[in-house]
């Protein structure tokens, strides 16, 4: 790793299908992943809805991009912070979210969890540690 690696965090605070923000964020993350930086994603407020299981947009005729979150591991994006309080306020638990994994090349391709459940206070500190923050 070079000295130039910066910590990039993408903040996802919007629900997925009513506006374009969630998909735009995901596209920027996938493009940005080519630059070999230390990338992480935060999901809080309505952003936690992006990770809900069993989304099926066939009835509203829009692209269903929820399966794309499962590809993030391939792009070496392996840190998805989800805020506990945001889930609770919305009547949700970790079990309602997709089971996102990444494969650790350095550990015989062992499957590891991408989602890290954190408290609001923890997330605040994690965001503060970043060099660059993108908001969606």
């Amino acid at each position: 790793m070079s000295e130039d690696i910066k910590k990039f965090m993408y903040l996802n605070r919007r629900a997925p299908h009513g506006t374009i923000y969630a998909w735009e964020s995901l596209e920027v993350v996938l493009i940005g992943a080519a630059f070999d930086q230390d990338v992480s994603l935060a999901f809080f407020d309505d952003g936690v809805y992006q990770l809900l299981k069993s989304q099926d947009t066939s009835g509203i005729e829009t692209k269903n991009f929820s399966p794309t979150y499962s590809a993030l591991g391939d792009y070496d994006v392996t840190k998805l912070y989800v805020e506990q309080e945001s889930l609770e306020e919305r009547g949700l638990t970790l079990d309602d979210l997709m089971d996102l994994k990444w494969e650790d090349e350095d550990d015989d391709w062992a499957e590891k969890d991408s989602i890290r459940l954190v408290s609001r206070a923890e997330l605040t500190d994690i965001i503060e540690q970043q060099d660059i923050v993108f908001s969606f």
């Binding site: 996938l30 080519a34 499962s70 590809a71 792009y75 391709w109």
Partner: peptide, 18 residues
């Protein structure tokens, strides 16, 4: 079909290797 995106070249390379 699985991920709803066309993979970037380096992702393709890694995945094909696997």
């Amino acid at each position: 079909e699985e991920y709803q995106i066309a993979p970037a070249v380096r992702v393709l390379t890694k995945a094909v290797g696997k």
